[in-house]
Measured scan of single mutants.
Amino acid sequence: PKDQAKKEIEKALRNGDEEKAKRLAKKYGISDDDWKELKKRVS
C-alpha cells in the first residue's frame, strides 16, 4: 500500500538517507507531487 511506502520513505528522509528514500519512491511508484509533499513534511 502507498501509505506504508510513504511511511518508509519519510523514515528514510528523517534519517537523512535520501538515496534510500529515492530508491523506495521509485520502487513504489511515488509521484513527484507525493515526493515533494514528503520532503516538505520532513524538512
Score class of each variant (00 low, 15 high):
Tyr28Gly: 03
Ala12Asn: 03
Gly29Leu: 06
Lys26Ile: 14
Gly16Pro: 01
Leu24Ser: 01
Lys2Glu: 11
Asn15Gly: 09
Lys11Pro: 00
Arg23Pro: 00
Gly16Thr: 02
Val42Cys: 06
Pro1Ser: 14
Lys26Arg: 10
Glu19Leu: 08
Lys6Arg: 13
Glu8Arg: 07
Asp17Arg: 04
Arg23Cys: 10
Ala12Val: 05
Asp17Tyr: 10
Arg23Asn: 11
Arg23Glu: 15
Asp17His: 09
Arg41Glu: 08
Lys39Gln: 13
Val42Tyr: 07
Asp3Ala: 13
Pro1Gln: 14
Lys26Thr: 10
Lys7Val: 11
Ala12His: 09
Asp32Cys: 09
Leu13Pro: 00
Asn15Lys: 10
Lys26Trp: 04
Glu37Ser: 05
Leu13Glu: 00
Lys26Gly: 06
Leu13Lys: 00
Ala21Ser: 03
Glu19Ser: 08
Ala25Ser: 04
Lys22Gly: 04
Asp3His: 11
Ile9Phe: 01
Ala21His: 00
Glu19Asn: 08
Lys6Thr: 10
Trp35Ser: 01
Glu18Met: 12
Arg14Met: 09
Arg23Ser: 12
Leu24Tyr: 02
Ala25Lys: 12
Glu10Tyr: 08
Arg14Gly: 04
Arg23Tyr: 11
Lys39Tyr: 06
Ala5Gln: 13
Ala21Gly: 03
Ala5Asn: 06
Asp32Val: 08
Arg23Asp: 13
Ala12Thr: 03
Leu38Lys: 01
Lys36Met: 13
Glu19Phe: 05
Asn15Met: 13
Lys27Met: 14
Glu37Asn: 06
Leu13Gln: 01
Lys36Leu: 15
Arg23Ile: 12
Glu10Asp: 03
Glu8His: 06
Ala21Val: 02
Leu24Asp: 02
Glu19Lys: 10
Glu37His: 04
Glu37Ala: 08
Ala25Met: 05
Ala21Gln: 00
Ser31Asp: 09
Ser43Met: 15
Leu24Trp: 02
Glu10Cys: 03
Arg14Tyr: 05
Arg41Met: 14
Lys7Cys: 09
Ser43Ile: 12
Lys36Ala: 12
Lys11Gly: 08
Ala21Pro: 00
Asp3Leu: 10
Asp32Met: 09
Arg41Ser: 11
Glu18Phe: 11
Lys6Tyr: 15
Lys2Asn: 14
Asp33Tyr: 06
Lys36Tyr: 13
Lys11Arg: 13
Glu18Ile: 13
Gln4Lys: 12
Leu13His: 00
Arg41Pro: 03
Gln4Phe: 14
Lys22Ala: 10
Asn15His: 11
Ala25Val: 05
Gly29His: 08
Leu13Ile: 05
Lys40His: 13
Glu10Gly: 03
Asn15Tyr: 07
Ala12Phe: 06
Asp3Gly: 09
Glu37Gln: 07
Lys39His: 10
Gly29Lys: 08
Trp35Asp: 00
Asp34Leu: 06
Lys6His: 12
Lys22Pro: 00
Asp17Cys: 05
Lys39Glu: 10
Ala12Ser: 04
Asp34Lys: 03
Asn15Cys: 11
Glu18Ala: 06
Glu37Val: 03
Lys20Arg: 11
Arg41Cys: 06
Leu13Gly: 00
Lys6Phe: 15
Lys7Phe: 09
Arg23Leu: 13
Lys2Asp: 13
Val42Ile: 13
Ala25Phe: 02
Lys36His: 12
Asp17Val: 01
Lys39Ser: 05
Lys20Asp: 08
Arg23Met: 13
Asp34Gln: 08
Trp35Pro: 00
Ala5Cys: 06
Pro1Trp: 12
Arg14Val: 06
Ala5His: 12
Ser43Thr: 11
Lys6Cys: 11
Lys2Ser: 14
Gly16Ser: 03
Leu38Gln: 02
Gly29Thr: 03
Ile9Lys: 00
Asp32Ser: 07
Leu38Gly: 01
Lys27Ile: 14
Tyr28Gln: 03
Ile9Thr: 01
Asp17Phe: 10
Ser43Asn: 12
Leu38Val: 07
Lys39Val: 15
Val42Glu: 03
Lys20Val: 09
Asp32Leu: 08
Lys26His: 10
Ser43Arg: 10
Arg14Phe: 05
Asp17Leu: 07
Lys39Ile: 15
Ala21Asn: 00
Ser31His: 04
Arg41Val: 10
Asp34Met: 07
Lys6Leu: 15
Leu24Gly: 00
Tyr28Cys: 05
Ile30Glu: 01
Arg41Ala: 13
Asp33Gln: 10
Gln4Met: 12
Asp33Cys: 04
Asp33Ser: 10
Lys22Met: 10
Lys22Ser: 08
Ala25Asn: 01
Glu19Ile: 08
Lys39Pro: 02
Lys27Val: 09
Glu19Gln: 10
Ala12Glu: 05
Leu24Val: 03
Asp34Ala: 07
Gln4Arg: 13
Gly16Tyr: 04
Leu13Trp: 02
Lys7Glu: 13
Arg41Phe: 05
Glu19Tyr: 05
Pro1Ile: 15
Asp34Ile: 07
Arg41Asp: 06
Lys36Ile: 14
Ala25His: 02
Val42His: 05
Ile30Lys: 00
Gln4His: 12
Lys11Met: 14
Ile30Leu: 14
Asp17Thr: 02
Asp34Pro: 00
Gly29Asp: 12
Glu18Asp: 07
Glu10Met: 14
Glu18Cys: 08
Glu18Leu: 11
Arg23Lys: 13
Leu24Gln: 01
Ile30Arg: 00
Glu37Trp: 04
Lys6Gly: 05
Leu38His: 02
Gly16Val: 01
Lys39Gly: 03
Lys22Tyr: 06
Lys11His: 14
Lys20His: 14
Ser43Pro: 06
Arg14Thr: 04
Lys20Ile: 09
Lys26Glu: 15
Glu8Lys: 06
Ser43Tyr: 09
Asp3Ile: 11
Asp34Trp: 08
Ala21Asp: 00
Lys27Thr: 06
Lys6Met: 15
Lys22Phe: 04
Lys36Phe: 14
Asp3Gln: 11
Gln4Trp: 15
Arg14Asp: 03
Lys39Met: 12
Asp33Ile: 09
Lys2Met: 14
Pro1Leu: 15
Lys27Phe: 13
Asp33Leu: 08
Ser43Gln: 14
Gly16Asp: 04
Asp34His: 03
Lys2Gly: 12
Asp34Asn: 03
Arg14Leu: 11
Trp35Tyr: 15
Trp35Gly: 00
Tyr28Met: 09
Tyr28Ser: 06
Val42Lys: 02
Glu37Met: 06
